[in-house]
Write a protein that binds this DNA or RNA. Structure first.
Lengths: 146, 146
DNA sequence: ACGGAAACGCTACACTGTTGCAACTACCAA
DNA sequence: TTGGTAGTTGCAACAGTGTAGCGTTTCCGT
């Protein structure tokens, strides 16, 4: 009994999923909507907690697979957090190359959209670069206060 | 029966350890010498394998603790590899801020000493940055060949 | 409504790293 | 040289993150 609400986010999410040729399932919808609502990168753990908070339980493995699928489809992107935890965020095509700020105290990650990593690359011969990851480590305002 | 060879590396390593007020133990010596010999960042796993190869067995936990100690003393530095594995390398004070190249196929990491990350930081108010990590992902010559 | 492929949800497992604690040993001092 | 002792080790057990296998369920085109 999936009551179809006409919330724009939901229809957008399901349309997005369907457009990539995937099945629109409870888990994928919930994951994508939650990521969209959050805006900031979330770890698998945070995502599971957020879903539980809104009354939905999802299997750990299923969440991993849903996230993997979203990344595979280019809908989300995955980043390494430095604390050996993957974090996921909805991919915005116009800002695919951007830096991240990682708070070493609480572990929160912030996307720095407007920070262009303008480094002059001088790789040794034979090395081919696919992408760059620039992560700033430090303390966020929340943790700095204490 | 620790035969004292007059290899410069060994005496250098033990002197370095002693200079930081730590005990010169079998494990610390082996770890530091191996890191110095390797030059490139090594994961805990690769380090253990290298030690076994030279006929020495060391406990997993002891290796972690030796590495932690080296990092704590500033003798080595630790980086997140993106594959949620810590990698360790001897710290060269003149190049503490440098980028890394990570091969997504074989996992090898290369230090890019001469690549200065000259990005213009524009952090939101309240955020304090301690350090930056710039990692380039791609394919190394070895893996590109195949 | 139906059938088959896709996705789910278990359980079990692998890997990386940490904690607790008794036994050992490198180092200092007598 | 010989203790004493604090710093280290080695073992076992554990915690967190992520994957593999596989039977069951569900989405979706027909």
């Amino acid at each position: 009994m999936t009551k179809i609400t006409h919330a724009p986010a939901e229809s957008m999410a399901s349309a997005l999923i369907a457009a990539h040729g995937g099945r629109v399932t409870r888990t994928r919808l919930a994951v994508l909507e939650t990521l969209q609502a959050e805006g900031q990168p979330m770890s698998h753990d945070e995502l599971a907690a957020a879903l539980v908070e809104q009354g939905e339980h999802h299997d750990r493995v299923t969440l991993y697979r849903a996230l993997d699928w979203l990344v595979e489809q280019g809908i989300a992107h995955r980043m390494a957090g430095g604390d050996r935890v993957w974090r996921f965020a909805v991919a915005r095509p116009e800002a695919h190359q951007h830096a991240h700020f990682h708070c070493d105290h609480c572990g929160q990650v912030l996307c720095l959209e407007n920070l262009l990593p303008s480094f002059a690359i001088a790789l040794p011969a034979g090395y081919r670069m696919d992408r760059a990851e620039l992560t700033l480590h430090g303390t966020c305002p929340n943790c700095a206060g204490r």
